[in-house]
Amino acid sequence: MRTNQLIIALFQRFCWLDEGLQARLHDLGWPDVSRPQSMVMTNIVSGIVRPSDIARNLGVSRQAIHSTINQMVKLGIVRLDVDPDDRRHMIVSLTETGARMRKDAQRAMDSLTAQIAARIGQDRFAALLDALEADWGDNIERAAKR
């Protein structure tokens, strides 16, 4: 089993995908966004809108997420508002500009997805998605106490 290669291969393919997305958005005239900014946008589009939830989902500090979100606010692609359901929290959402960028990003991802399927074959691509979407269970397995 090639267990040591798994994390490297997953990360390399993630970087390939993100770099392809960024290049396509750049070619369409969008401002360059960092990988953390890209991951924040992905969370927002997936419905994760509280900065603390985004931080938890990405495994980074709330301070790091707030810094990233503030950069994105300056770019005009997201905004921060008080959560109407719980005024103690903020929510982040796409601006009109961010929504247009998201549509272009979705088209870019559709193109990249088609490119991957064409390169590795539709059956292997479907198997890859099935494996990645499968329930892998809890991510921390505790050793039995002795």
Rank of each mutant, 00 (worst) to 15 (best):
A134H: 15
A144W: 10
L80T: 14
A108K: 10
D138A: 13
L132Y: 13
A144H: 07
M101L: 15
A117R: 06
R107T: 06
G121V: 02
K74F: 04
G98H: 00
I120L: 10
L128F: 02
D86C: 01
A99M: 07
Q71C: 05
R119S: 09
A131F: 06
I91Q: 09
A99W: 12
Q63T: 08
V73M: 10
T68K: 08
Q71W: 04
N139M: 04
L94A: 12
A117T: 07
R142I: 07
G98V: 03
R102E: 07
N139S: 11
I69G: 11
D104I: 00
A143T: 09
S67L: 04
E133W: 03
R107E: 13
D123A: 10
R142W: 05
L75R: 04
D85G: 03
L132R: 10
M72K: 13
I116M: 12
I120E: 15
T68F: 05
V82I: 14
D86W: 02
A108V: 08
M101N: 14
L132V: 10
R79L: 01
D138S: 14
L94Y: 13
V78D: 09
R119N: 08
A117P: 09
Q63H: 04
A118K: 05
V82W: 03
S67T: 15
Q106Y: 10
I65H: 02
A144T: 11
N139R: 09
A144K: 09
